[in-house]
Design a protein around this nucleic acid. Structure first.
Lengths: 339, 339
DNA sequence: AATATGAACGCAAACGCTTGCGCAACAAGG
DNA sequence: CCTTGTTGCGCAAGCGTTTGCGTTCATATT
């Protein structure tokens, strides 16, 4: 039905091999013949069959991208920017949405990307077994989330520094009762919540503030979870005057909880988030900004480089800058009556 | 390097054809042989090469999904749900992020999905030429956005009814000066903004309100655009007391503009959006909710059905329900001094 | 003038599957 | 006992490319 390489060859009066070489810019074809073949191909609307060429060459020109939730802003944004880099380089993106445990399990046992992709970018944290499965593919691997893993190129941020800037900001405003909404319930291989928690504890210790476990709550990295967590914190015998949320989505949930309690940020409670979500600006959320799209693009670029130079040492870990963005949800604690 | 079908055949003492039939559940294989082959295949970690099988069979078990911006909530959500349906049915998803004119143009001229996908789901509105290019692929086509197009299965909502419910709500609250933030600057083939505008005008006419062109502004479907548009409306000689935004993102931009002007919703201006964005709840935005994820899932299901029953008449247009969600950004207009 | 050199191209063998067809073997029907 | 089916399997021909090798022919080298 659609034109094949042989149709082009016949129409151009050459062999299929010449067509193949001509169209892919390989040497061994004179300029006149090359131009003529290009013209014929264009006229016939010929596009090489990816299946056939990857079968023959072993190269698929396809990248597998593994994502827990495409719909969430962070992942969507990373995916968006990574895809642009890949497609600009002539690679297609095969998307796997592995949010639910079943699909995830099926993916890693069947490994449908085998012989189908030239590299894998994973936005979810594989456990030991899953990492091994991915390594068994024998292709370059990268990720934009979580700690260092052998065999993976990881591009991330300095979670510790980011957290420190956020919590120090609260301390400097004069807060002493500083709560945290974390996202610890995920898989254990996920080092980010742990690093952020440690940094939080260190800043408190540095400031001579005693840590109160009642001021920590789990927000599951979702808006609803953040709301629940904030509600929990407000119910403490001595609620916090400021809260650091490990993600903007949880921070927004916290803001909603405050509204439901007829409280306001920053008048009653200061809130600072993490990420600089697209809508953080809209709700006036103070937050520590990380370059999300850039991380996706950078990870994509590093993968492409590994494909171009298979022998070069793969980069292990690159860090991108963060910065605190001051908006309207943080302020000094309101002077209270009797402590 | 990795096991091929012949390795399995040899290890199981049968021919490659039998392995192929056995593993894909085709008839012509006895149960014992089938089980034994399955065991051998599992032990060897065999997965059929997609390239080879699609080359041989013509079926790719891959769906192409075309998206303007993966990072935007609406598209990310549709993509998320559609992918789940596809992968559950054993199909992979090839993602094309076609936001910029250049990538879009390149996609439609080179048509890299040719011979690579069994169907296409497009979340962007193809123009006439692009539609023709897609139809030339000879595979089922579907979309979740925009008006009816020949050859495409479209699942959408009743834009007119949704808009009417939003604007009537404002009218019923007593508003007479009702502005609209639209998103008309997109491609012309995109009927949604037009339908919504018509519905808006009709409701006004119905209520005996004269239309004031100064109360319309373009928000480009983005937060920033919404902010600009609202700023524009506020600068009118007689600013609106209520605004209908054609998307929640623009509505959120409008809210931000209000904050910047030291105005509040709904005290100074009522705002109603469209979509029921994930965070509409967080900012308390009144909006007309559409089932975004369901639309993606439904479109995916309809495509799969067409693949299963190639002879059946493809469904033309299915509509999903909408409903007005009342939150905290709408209220009766504040009684003013001298009109 | 004879030979070596390289560029331009064709031949044919893969790549790893699917599938129509043929051929046994065995069961059932007359 | 001979047909007629049916079931289970192997053979081999594709599917549309890529690529190592061989051939041809023009040009450069002695």
């Amino acid at each position: 039905m659609t034109a094949s390489i042989n149709d082009v060859a016949r129409a151009a009066g050459v062999s299929a091999s010449t067509v193949s070489r001509a169209l892919r810019g390989r040497p061994g074809v004179s300029d006149e013949v090359r131009d003529q073949i290009a013209a014929v191909a264009a006229q016939l609307g010929y596009t090489a069959s990816r299946s056939a060429s990857s079968l023959a060459s072993g190269r698929t020109y396809t990248i597998g991208v593994l994502v827990p939730y495409v719909g969430r802003w962070f992942f969507g944004t990373v995916l968006d920017s990574a895809e642009k880099v890949f497609s600009a380089a002539g690679y297609d993106v095969l998307l796997y949405n592995l949010g639910s445990p079943e699909t995830r399990k099926r993916f890693f046992t069947k490994l449908p990307v085998r012989k189908r992709v030239d590299a894998v970018l994973t936005l979810l944290i594989p456990d030991e077994e899953e990492s091994a499965a991915l390594r068994s593919l024998g292709v370059p691997l990268a990720t934009t989330v979580g700690g260092i893993r052998p065999g993976f190129t990881v591009v991330g941020i300095d979670d510790r520094a980011g957290t420190e800037s956020a919590v120090r900001h609260l301390v400097n405003l004069g807060h002493r009762r500083i709560g945290m909404i974390s996202g610890a319930s995920g898989p254990l291989h996920w080092t980010t919540p742990i690093e952020r928690r440690n940094a939080y504890l260190d800043v408190l210790a540095d400031a001579g503030i005693e840590h109160d476990p009642a001021l920590e709550a789990d927000g599951d990295y979702t808006v609803e979870g953040g709301e629940r967590a904030m509600t929990e914190l407000l119910a403490a015998s001595r609620p916090p005057t400021a809260v650091f949320a490990q993600s903007d989505e949880m921070a927004m949930g916290a803001l909603r909880a405050l509204r439901r309690h007829r409280l306001k940020a920053p008048d009653d409670v200061s809130v600072v988030g993490f990420d600089d979500h697209e809508l953080a600006d809209v709700v006036g959320l103070t937050t520590v900004a990380q370059p999300v799209a850039e991380q996706g693009a950078e990870a994509a670029r590093l993968l492409l480089r590994q494909l171009d130079e298979p022998d070069a040492e793969p980069p292990g870990h690159v860090q991108m800058p963060i910065r605190l963005v001051l908006r309207e949800t943080t302020a000094p604690p309101r002077p209270r009556g009797p402590q």
